[in-house]
Design a protein around this nucleic acid. Structure first.
Lengths: 139, 139
DNA sequence: TATTGTTATACTCTATAACTATA
DNA sequence: TATAGTTATAGAGTATAACAATA
């Protein structure tokens, strides 16, 4: 008998692909890239003192997010001001407009996501999200 | 009130990254690439009549798996013979050695995967895998 | 003319390292 | 000299389209 099941990654990977495919149109409709949305999410929780710290927080390289920050700043969604105490560093924060965009996008994305779970029984749907959140919080 | 939680993709993506990071050393130890392992898994379940069909089954482009098939064939893990009835097509099947490699790799990968779930209560661990498998079977 | 497999090309992402400006 | 940010370069992965061989 026994543990005859696909690998976790083999099951999770297609799921992630599907979720991303659902998110992209939402993000495009609001002129935000995936990395941009990730930045807005991180900054909505708490401002950050350096770009390197932000990059690490979202699992990116510091050189990789620069274009993203340029876009977000130009769109008025974030502020990037030199730290008066150390003008090498850039103080990063989300603007009220950025907050609005982030919340709107999240609402729409989470609505889409429910579709992916429709094949599950309602109880399982809640359970899955709960356990997933525990896994997420554990890292 | 309030569905205040991270997006599913935001929680699943880091999980997948971690799982892949765990798998890579196992695969490397057996000289199989990620796509190679994916091909072996697909062919272990059932042989396939064309490369295009195999590619679609594993979510890849038909041009993308050619290098992978070359490697697997040269390593004696798969067979690729022209269909006598239609010599354009290549009949694909796994060899006994390929089957052995696939099973060994899977055993080692699934052992590693348990680590990722250690933060969960044992009951939740089983529940998570069960629901995930339902989601996977539903597509 | 259509289809299978293959090769070639270009495009996107990412990682690394050089560069500048501050300290 | 060390650090934050930026820019430049190269590498990997992927998608697209052209190509050769069969049908």
């Amino acid at each position: 008998m026994a543990t005859e099941r696909p690998d976790l990654a083999a099951m999770l990977y297609p799921l992630v692909r599907e979720l991303i495919a659902l998110e992209l149109p939402v993000l495009a409709a609001h002129d935000v890239s995936m990395w941009g949305y990730s930045v807005l999410t991180a900054l909505d929780d708490t401002p950050v003192r350096t770009q390197a710290a932000l990059a690490e927080a979202i699992g990116a390289d510091k050189s990789r997010i620069i274009g993203t920050l340029d876009e977000l700043q130009q769109a008025g969604l974030i502020e990037r001001t030199p730290d008066p105490a150390d003008r090498r560093a850039r103080l990063l924060s989300i603007t009220p407009q950025g907050r609005r965009v982030r919340r709107t996008v999240r609402k729409e994305i989470q609505a889409q996501e429910e579709q992916v779970l429709t094949s599950l029984a309602p109880a399982d749907r809640k359970t899955f999200v709960r356990i997933l959140q525990e896994l997420h919080d554990a890292r």
